[in-house]
Amino acid sequence: MSFINWASREINCKIVYYGPGLCGKTTNLQYIYKKTKPEAKGKMISLATETERTLFFDFLPLSLGDIRGFKTRFHLYTVPGQVFYDASRKLILKGVDGIVFVADSQEERIDANMESFENLKHNLIEQGYNLDQIPYVIQYNKRDLPNVVNTPELRRMLNQKNVPDFEAVASSGQGVFETLKAIAKQVLVELKKGK
């Protein structure tokens, strides 16, 4: 649910990075934070365990510039990927405007990807959304690892709707901004349509 403020001429949108545990959601945000000019970003918050696993969420506010005199702000969130944090994931999906599904390309994580994708659909429905109606993109992360499944195969499993999808290596930044731009653009196009 975007927030349009006519008084301060701002528009705020919420983007959630979703995906199985250790797929690289936090790494995406860390890279965006590292590479964004100081004036365009706020502080990045990570509510994580002592072992740096996301416990509740990561949060990064980004300012993209003006459209027709309105400041466009994107609030990026990640969810905790581990299966047992489902209650927290549901909370973070509230008010979402766009979703990045980060898949782990490694062969042994295929089941985890599928499970997480089904979990996303299920949790969206619980919050009154539908993945068919909400902007989303898919990122196939960790393409630099030796045991990855090829992209057409991943696409067949996860991207039957043929939404924009990207290969990535979030740790080095490959594909990170392409993914972000694609989802931000989709969210703005959706706003243009007027809900």
């Binding site: 349009i4 006519w6 528009i11 993209l64 510039g65 459209i67 027709r68 005199g69 309105f70 466009t72 731009k181 931000a184 653009k185 703005l188 196009v189 706003l191 243009k192 007027g194 809900k195």
Partner: peptide
């Protein structure tokens, strides 16, 4: 709801310019 939102008039170019 039926009135104009500030985003109805934006063009694809406006969006591209952000990036």
């Amino acid at each position: 709801g039926s009135q104009k939102t500030p985003f109805e008039e934006i063009t694809d170019q406006d969006i591209d310019k952000l990036f």
